[in-house]
């Protein structure tokens, strides 16, 4: 293989996700996409093969024109039904991508995800696989209120048999989604709605980013921040604020929560001796507590200070803008947590 620098282009997080699906569907005829309004306007005569929406945020826009309505499947609002169908199809030869519009809707279909999809291989003694990707929107920040703003990746990370992916940049979104689609296990792919419009350099080509490999988003020597999804950007902003005080922050983006790149986190803490975890999910039994427990267990002697967690409060997501702002970890809160342990 000739090592050449991969060409990149500017694109949004949403476009990068769209491109990953397009590449995967071109390469593999068993990849299908299903979900509520992923095309939209099914059986509306004047639309023909056009999509009405291409997903509520336009993330899947244009796919139906290329792949047709046999592979881009609009579904009724029946999460248990179509998520379950995706699981069943995955176990029998397709490689479905199912779109759960907002992660908060997992309650409508959790049995199919966790009792069926996630456990099927294990219960069948390894004689089946479940290569399904469930793409879903997470995150507060657009005042979508209590049932359209949660993160909840902690819930899925808790469950064996599920891989959980939390891309924070357009490039990561593309590379990780390609790997997720090619992965033979059930993958929950969490797209932060606030990041959809974020632009970044995205490599051309079809190379995946391996699941389970963290990325150092910023190198530093004084404190390690492990930040998930959009919190990577909040933490980078905090790092810039702290830089003015002479505090050198390292920001680690785990990129996948299950599997978790423990070595990357421990190596960073071995260098900085200080750990702050920034997580937009609720604080109890969460990925933040999980990472904190892992470091306390395996890296106790590396620590010079208590592990600090900056998270959402133990509440649902509020609607009102000032309340939602107080809910989401801010760069100021992150910087304050860093200062409190140095």
């Amino acid at each position: 293989m000739v090592a050449t620098a991969t060409a990149t282009r500017q694109m949004t997080y949403a476009e990068a996700i769209n491109e990953a699906m397009r590449i995967a569907m071109r390469q593999d005829p068993t990849v299908v996409l299903m979900g509520e309004d992923v095309a939209g306007g099914a059986m509306v005569d004047h639309l023909g093969n056009e999509d009405a929406w291409g997903g509520p945020m336009g993330v899947t826009k244009g796919l139906v024109q290329e792949f047709g309505r046999n592979r881009i499947l609009d579904t009724p609002i029946t999460e248990a039904g179509f998520i379950g169908a995706a699981v069943g199809a995955a176990a029998t030869g397709l490689r479905p991508i199912a779109e759960l519009m907002f992660v908060d809707f997992f309650g409508c279909c959790m049995d199919q995800i966790f009792d069926q999809g996630a456990k099927l291989r294990y219960m069948f003694g390894g004689k089946a696989k479940c290569p399904v990707v469930i793409r879903t929107m997470i995150g507060a920040g657009v005042n979508a209120a209590g049932q359209h703003s949660g993160c909840h990746y902690s819930v899925f990370t808790h469950m064996p048999g599920i891989k959980t992916v939390v891309p924070s940049t357009p490039a990561d979104a593309k590379g990780l989604l390609l790997s997720a689609i090619r992965d033979d296990d059930l993958v929950m792919f969490f797209e932060n709605k606030v990041l959809y419009a974020m632009k970044g350099e995205v490599p051309e080509g079809d190379e995946g980013i391996p699941l389970g490999k963290a990325d150092i988003k910023r190198e530093g020597s004084d404190v390690t921040i492990v930040a998930i999804s959009r919190m990577v950007h909040q933490s980078l902003a905090a790092a810039r604020m702290l830089e003015a005080d002479g505090i050198d922050v390292e920001v680690i983006d785990p990129r996948t929560l299950s599997p978790l790149d423990e070595d990357a986190i421990l190596s960073s803490v071995a260098k900085t001796h200080h750990l702050v975890i920034v997580d937009e999910d609720n604080p109890r039994c969460s990925c933040a507590t999980d990472i904190a427990a892992m470091v306390a267990d395996k890296g106790f002697d590396l620590l010079d200070a208590p592990i600090k967690m900056v998270t959402a409060p133990h509440t649902p997501v509020p609607f009102s803008p000032p309340l939602e702002q107080a809910y989401v970890p801010s760069p100021e809160r992150i910087a304050e947590a860093v200062r409190s342990i140095l």
Binding site: N143, A145, G146, Q147, F319, S320, P322, L323
Partner: peptide, 16 residues
């Protein structure tokens, strides 16, 4: 509008 005087104190908004 998400105001404190809302019927749900601004916690729920239009959808709740």
């Amino acid at each position: 509008m998400g105001k404190a005087t809302g019927v749900c104190k601004g916690k729920g908004g239009s959808m709740h």
